[in-house]
Design a binder for these strands. Structure first.
Length: 272
DNA sequence: AACGGAACCTGAAAGC
DNA sequence: TGCTTTCAGGTTCCGT
């Protein structure tokens, strides 16, 4: 579920649930998600702390605490944050719980659920490398066409793989890349350094439009993105919404890519 | 140095 | 029906 729009929606929920609240307890037994720290250290680090704010960069969330420490959260492939009553039993794939009390005395329990356990939760005293090394965030920083063109021009990879490189742009995943390239009418297998400035401009427009659309959709936590309507993602074999040709599925950089072989043209020659 | 592919996990859906 | 295979929105490690 988690690409930039999903993580941004999670950030807004966490802010409304935890902003200004004090953590009364934090528990987990999942060594994988908390690696490299041990589950025992989580409660000790968080108990008694007040949440100052929740920020996001790319697919990373940063929960800022009153002692200067931060809790970094990456949702991996299937992670999400949900709010429950404190007495609510643990969901089958619940991995972490953080109980909070708000200024008015209202108590709630914020739970991290993650079926496949690819997510991460890291307490640190300063920003972690995974956060610092991210490229520009399309929402927080905007996308500068010129610097993106420079960045893409330096790589010979398929443009789809380059767009999903978190140091190129933070937060772009398989759905955003697939949809943006469909909107831009560019074959995802085109070499990154073969794109014209106009191509990059269309990709920027495509990414922005898709991010706006997905943020507006505000699908509730836990919803499957496949319920949503995409132009190309997950629609192999179906008709292209633009030209009616049959959408094709290929694998690039280890990830499934769907595109229209008729109206998404492959860029070949290097731009001048 | 940069790139493709496997590995890491779990469960749902499709295939036989 | 039930067993097997395939697939999934992410990152990281390893070999070339």
């Amino acid at each position: 579920m988690p690409e930039l729009p999903d993580v941004e929606l999670a950030r807004r929920r966490l802010r409304s649930w935890m902003g200004g609240a004090t953590i009364t307890a934090a528990r987990s037994t999942d060594r994988r998600i908390l690696r490299p720290h041990s589950p025992a250290t989580l409660g000790a680090a968080l108990r008694g702390r007040t949440v100052r704010g929740v920020s996001r960069r790319g697919k990373w969330l940063r929960i800022e605490l009153d002692d200067g420490r931060r809790l970094f959260s990456h949702l991996g492939m299937t992670g999400d944050w949900v709010r429950r009553a404190p007495e609510a039993p643990a969901h089958a794939s619940e991995r972490v719980r953080i109980d909070v009390v708000r200024a008015g005395g209202r108590r709630s329990s914020v739970r991290y659920v993650d079926t496949r356990r690819f997510g991460r939760l890291i307490v640190a005293r300063e920003d972690i490398p995974e956060w610092r090394e991210l490229g520009p965030d399309p929402l927080a920083d905007g996308i500068d066409t010129r610097s993106l063109a420079e960045s893409l021009g330096r790589s010979r990879r398929a443009v789809k793989a380059a767009l999903m490189d978190q140091t190129v742009l933070a937060g772009v995943g398989n759905i955003l890349a697939t949809e943006a390239l469909w909107r831009a009418r560019i074959d995802p297998r085109s070499r990154s350094d073969a794109l014209s400035r106009g191509d990059v401009g269309k990709i920027v427009q495509g990414l922005s439009a898709e991010i706006r659309k997905e943020l507006a959709a505000r699908r509730p936590a836990g919803d499957d993105a496949r319920d949503e309507s995409f132009f190309a993602y997950g629609r192999a074999g179906q008709a292209c919404p633009r030209c009616e040709a049959s959408l094709v599925r290929v694998v690039t950089g280890g990830r499934t890519t769907t595109f229209c072989p008729r109206c998404q043209l492959r860029r070949t020659s290097s731009p001048g």
